[in-house]
Each structure stands twice: as structure tokens, then as C-alpha cells.
């Protein structure tokens, strides 16, 4: 049974240890960890409003994490999810404010635009890597900045200010029923799109010849070439799909949470957090959902920790999240300890 459960056991242990270490840090800093964690819990599950907001926060994390995990499964490190998300966000809002269409066309069109924008942004590093062997990490990092400043310029030119107008309601992901049951939180229908995307990506990776080829290229390019697969083409496809998912994450913000786009002085951070989500989820599409739930819930719930009586600084929760990720990322350590422990018991 040990082998089957280790992929689940390690993250769970890591989270528990992370919270314990976090408690120690809080205590050392002169705050009360029990009160702090109680407020964290309240901040996530306290009432229907915070539950709605937590899910709202989780939604883009699912997609950003999925984008990173998908590329990673196929041997590519897409650090450009952030930039792809930013262009996706912009494209979604642009379609949302520029057209006058019935909802059943407008909303899908806006979502599609976001995906295609992200896909295009990822196509650039993909084709450079496939044709010229340029390292995708460097290109995607640079393209994050390009995305940030290009969209800022575009927003100023079309909005004549720093913020665009609201998108037409025909392009919105908001669902009145969700707003009503969550005391008018910003919870929107994007969570369904995120879950659907997870299922589709899982299916592609595990059940299709495309997924088989992409994974083969990820594990061994030499063996893929030997088997007659078109490795450069697969690199491009993989980046494009990853970018498409990242673009969808942008649509969640543009069509759901904010319903507008404004100029940014810095990155949103969601794309980078996606890397952590992918690590937490073991680069597995289903795992990513759990990674995103954990990450998003902690991120949102922590906003409640600075309130009295705990009054724990917001920065502290960043430390705790970092500690948890550290423990999961050093999963090898756990595996090693685990095996050593089992060996002593003579189980192997």
C-alpha cells in the first residue's frame, strides 16, 4: 500500500508540517498561533461570502497551475504563464467591451480570445525552441515584461485612461444565483470552465495519442525521434496548449472577478504562483486542483489574519505558504525518511 499512497501522503504531511513550523514562527514573533489559525479558518470558511471569495480566488490558480503542469509534463518549463495570463485578460476584456452580441456568442468568443492570445504569446517561445533551440525559460521570462508593458500601452490607447470601461454583461461570467447565495461575493461561473479544462487536459495527457507523444518527448527526446515522432512540432503544440490555458486564467479575472482591465505597475503574481500550485499538485492535472484549493484558500483566508484579536501581519502568511511549498518541493526528503522508516520495520 505504501507506493500507492505516497503521492497523497507526502503533500498532506508537508502541509501539516508547514502549518506546525508556521505556528512556531508566529509564536516566536510574539503572536498567538491558535488565534491566528482560527482567524485563518474563519477567513476561508467563516460565512458564505468568504467561501465564495475563496473559490473565486482558487479559480485562476487552477488554470495557471494547470498551464505550468501541462508544459512540465511534456518537458518544458513555462515561466511565461504570467505574461500569457496578462494578454489573455486584456484580450477577453477587449472583446467584452467592443462587441454587441448575444451572450451565447459573446461570452464564448471572449473566452476564446483570451485563450488564443495566451496561446500566441506561448507560441513565440515554442517556435524559437523548436526551430532554433532557444531556451524557453529565458524567452518566457522576457515575454512576461513585454506582455505587461504592451497591454498597458494598449489599455491607455483604447481607454484614454488607466482603466477600461466595464465589459458588456453578455460577456460576463457572473452568475446572479452565485452572487445571491454568497452575500454578493465576486464568485463567478469561471470555476466550471476551470474544472472542465482540467478534465480535458487530463484526457489529452492520459488517453490520447497526442498526450502519449507529448509525454514521450518530455521523458526522452531521443526515444521520441527514434520512434518517428515530430519532436519540434510537439514542442510548439505543447507550448500553445499551455499558453491557451494560461490565457483562460486571464479570462477568469477579466470576465469574472473584475470585469475590466487596468494598467498594472507590476505582474499579477498569479502566473508565478501557478508554478507553486503545479509543484503542490505533483504536475498532475487532478493534483493541481488540490494544489490550487490549498494555495488559493490560504492566500484569501490570510487576509483575515491581520484583524484583531490575532493581528498577525499579512507577511507572516506568505512565510507560512512558502514553508509549506518548501516542504512539498523537498518531497524527496520525505520519501527518503519514509523509506528509511519502512526499511527499519523490514517492510520493503
Amino acid at each position: 500500500m505504501s507506493k500507492r499512497w505516497t503521492p497523497i501522503l507526502i503533500p498532506v504531511l508537508a502541509v501539516i508540517l508547514g502549518l506546525l513550523v508556521g505556528a512556531v514562527i508566529i509564536a516566536i514573533s510574539g503572536y498567538n498561533p491558535i488565534v491566528g489559525y482560527a482567524q485563518l479558518w474563519e477567513g476561508i470558511f467563516g460565512d458564505s461570502y468568504v467561501i465564495g471569495e475563496s473559490i473565486r480566488q482558487i479559480t485562476p490558480y487552477v488554470l495557471a497551475g494547470l498551464a505550468v503542469a501541462f508544459a512540465f509534463k511534456t518537458g518544458l518549463f513555462n515561466i511565461g504563464v504570467e505574461g500569457q495570463l496578462i494578454v489573455g485578460w486584456f484580450a477577453a476584456v477587449y472583446v467584452g467591451i467592443s462587441f454587441d452580441l448575444p451572450a451565447y456568442i459573446h461570452l464564448p468568443l471572449a473566452i476564446l480570445a483570451a485563450g488564443l492570445a495566451g496561446a500566441f504569446w506561448a507560441f513565440i517561445p515554442g517556435i524559437l525552441k523548436a526551430k532554433l533551440g532557444v531556451n524557453e525559460v529565458v524567452v518566457t521570462i522576457m515575454l512576461n515584461y513585454t506582455a505587461l508593458h504592451v497591454t498597458n500601452a494598449l489599455i491607455r490607447s483604447i481607454a484614454k485612461g488607466d482603466t477600461t470601461e466595464q465589459i458588456a454583461q453578455t460577456a460576463s461570467l457572473r452568475i446572479p444565483f452565485f452572487e445571491e447565495i454568497t452575500q454578493y461575493s465576486r464568485l463567478h461561473g469561471g470555476i466550471f470552465i476551470a474544472i472542465l479544462t482540467v478534465i480535458i487536459i487530463w484526457f489529452i495527457l492520459e488517453k490520447t495519442t497526442l498526450g502519449y507523444e507529448l509525454k514521450a518527448a518530455g521523458f526522452s527526446q531521443d526515444a521520441s525521434k527514434y520512434a518517428g515522432m515530430n519532436v519540434p512540432r510537439n514542442i510548439v503544440i505543447s507550448m500553445v496548449i499551455s499558453g491557451f490555458i494560461a490565457g483562460l486564467a486571464g479570462a477568469m479575472e477579466g470576465l469574472g472577478t473584475f470585469e475590466y482591465v487596468s494598467t498594472k505597475t507590476a505582474m499579477t503574481g498569479i502566473g508565478f504562483d501557478g508554478i507553486a500550485v503545479a509543484v503542490l499538485g505533483g504536475n498532475n492535472p487532478i493534483g493541481v486542483v488540490f494544489g490550487a484549493i490549498l494555495f488559493g484558500a490560504l492566500k484569501y483566508g490570510s487576509l483575515n489574519m491581520p484583524n484583531p484579536p490575532a493581528q498577525i501581519p499579512e507577511e507572516m502568511i506568505s512565510v507560512i505558504i512558502a514553508v509549506i511549498i518548501f516542504f512539498v518541493a523537498s518531497g524527496y526528503l520525505f520519501q527518503w525518511l519514509y523509506e528509511k522508516f519502512s526499511k527499519k520495520k523490514g517492510v520493503k
Partner: peptide, 24 residues
């Protein structure tokens, strides 16, 4: 192939998946 680890097999794939590497 000469180098079974580099070319002949995708080592992280299952035995079954490797059997269909040329015909999947």
C-alpha cells in the same frame, strides 16, 4: 538501437506503452 536507454525505450513509460512505441 545501440543505446537502449537513450533511443530504444521511454524509461518512464510502462512496459505496455513501450511495446507500442512504433505503432501507438
Amino acid at each position: 538501437p545501440q543505446d537502449r536507454h537513450r533511443h530504444g525505450l521511454v524509461l518512464n513509460f510502462s512496459v505496455g506503452e513501450n511495446f507500442v512505441l512504433q505503432s501507438y
